[in-house]
Design a protein around this nucleic acid. Structure first.
Lengths: 112, 112
DNA sequence: CTCTACCCATAGATAAACTATATATACGCT
DNA sequence: AGCGTATATATAGTTTATCTATGGGTAGAG
């Protein structure tokens, strides 16, 4: 009845970019980190993650290169570009603005 | 390039239910109120609003009846049902949980 | 030599929201 | 009388994000 979404639609790109701002990372690692930092509230499914990364690549917000992980595995490491850093700023601002706006509607702030 | 969404996907039903919790209202009025309370940050397009109201009706979360407005117009007034009140509670809780989780990811709270 | 954790990727379905369009009426203005 | 604007509902068709399901493949532990 009441579905339990894995994440809030429209926030995935922002979460990925923010994760990459801390350090370059591969897809699997990004998903794990988001899951862990959110205390398992947010889960990034693989079918959402990899298309999202393709989107970000196409937009030029991240770049990718194949490397070996510490555990000796081939993995594609994504790095935030300058444009990506800028985009992250835009998305963070917009997101905060929306959250505040939603808060106003939910709380029904009275005005003169 | 950087799209400006009208609202955060996944929050519309909650916003409508919350608006109706204050008082029964017609579709047009709901959209106006959300827009105004949010200081024009949130805009509910008609193509989003009316399908959403149909959804809520089908789920039994609201009921509707035709009435006249104060300005002497035919309009369909929606009222929150008991089930709708309950659903609103669920959605509010989930939303807060998600927002907090996103906040943790964005702020990268350090733990032991 | 099998199992689990790690890692990438895409095709297809679903659902929410958007754009565009259609209809209609009350009221004020000229 | 005629026009424009704000009010009011509704749907068809498109787009886009996310999910489900599936397919690969490798390192290392047991």
């Amino acid at each position: 009845m009441a579905r339990k979404p894995d994440l809030l639609p429209g926030t995935l790109d922002m979460l990925i970019l923010r994760t990459l701002q801390r350090a370059p990372l591969h897809g699997y690692g990004i998903a794990l980190q988001i899951k862990r930092l959110s205390d398992d509230v947010l889960t990034v499914e693989e079918g959402s993650l990899y298309p999202a990364l393709q989107r970000l690549l196409l937009q030029g917000w991240v770049k990718a290169e194949w490397k070996m992980t510490e555990t000796n595995r081939r993995a594609r490491f994504y790095t935030l570009t300058a444009a990506g850093r800028k985009q992250l700023g835009v998305e963070l601002t917009q997101f905060e603005q929306m959250i505040e706006a939603i808060g106003r509607v939910l709380r029904d702030v009275q005005e003169a």
